[in-house]
Amino acid sequence: MSANPGNRLQKWNPTPPDRGAFPLDHYGDCKEHMQKYLNCMKLVRNENAPNCRQLAKDYLACRMDHELMERVDWKDLGLPEDERDSKK
């Protein structure tokens, strides 16, 4: 039984990803930041802990610095800007 009735070839048109989807970190540029964040989330059992939010900001900042995601304001990501960010 054929999955393509009539063996008709159809052109596949890929669509761009929705907002929030971004390239994989193939070279591991931000792997250390990601591991720290995931370990924190595991430690606090996925609770919304302030120290994990800071690690999330560090991870996302690394991704933005390495052009693995579009540069976005922290307020648009739901993360408050702190005094350390405003000094940059």
Rank of each mutant, 00 (worst) to 15 (best):
K36M: 07
H66F: 12
E83S: 09
V44E: 08
D85V: 02
N4I: 04
E67G: 09
Q10M: 03
N46E: 03
R8G: 04
L77A: 07
K87V: 11
M64F: 01
M34H: 14
A49E: 13
P16N: 08
D73V: 00
M64C: 02
L9I: 14
R84L: 11
K42H: 15
S2D: 15
S86M: 15
G78D: 02
L68S: 01
G6W: 07
L43F: 15
Y59M: 10
D25V: 05
L24W: 11
K11Q: 09
M1Y: 15
D18Q: 11
H33N: 03
L55A: 01
G20H: 12
M64V: 04
V44L: 02
M34F: 13
L77R: 02
T15V: 11
P5S: 11
L77M: 14
D58T: 02
G28C: 12
L60F: 04
D76I: 03
M41T: 13
Q54M: 07
Y27T: 13
K57L: 02
S86F: 03
D58V: 00
M41H: 04
R63F: 01
A61W: 02
N46H: 09
W74T: 00
P17L: 11
C40V: 03
K87T: 12
Q35G: 03
E70R: 13
P5G: 08
M1Q: 14
E70A: 04
Y37L: 15
R71C: 05
N4R: 00
P23C: 13
G20W: 13
P14G: 05
E32W: 10
Y27I: 07
K57Q: 04
P14S: 06
N48S: 14
Q10I: 00
S86T: 13
P17D: 03
P17S: 11
S86N: 11
S2R: 15
N39E: 15
H33C: 00
Q10F: 06
A56Y: 00
L9R: 15
D25G: 12
L77E: 03
Y59H: 09
L60C: 06
E83D: 13
H33F: 05
H33W: 01
K31E: 06
K87A: 08
G20P: 11
N48I: 02
P17A: 09
N51S: 05
P23L: 15
H33S: 04
R19N: 13
R19C: 12
E67P: 04
P17Y: 09
L79K: 06
H66I: 01
K36I: 04
D25T: 10
C40M: 05
D25E: 14
V44P: 01
N4T: 10
R8N: 10
Q10W: 08
A49N: 10
D58M: 00
W74V: 02
S86Q: 15
K87S: 13
K11H: 12
L9K: 14
E83V: 07
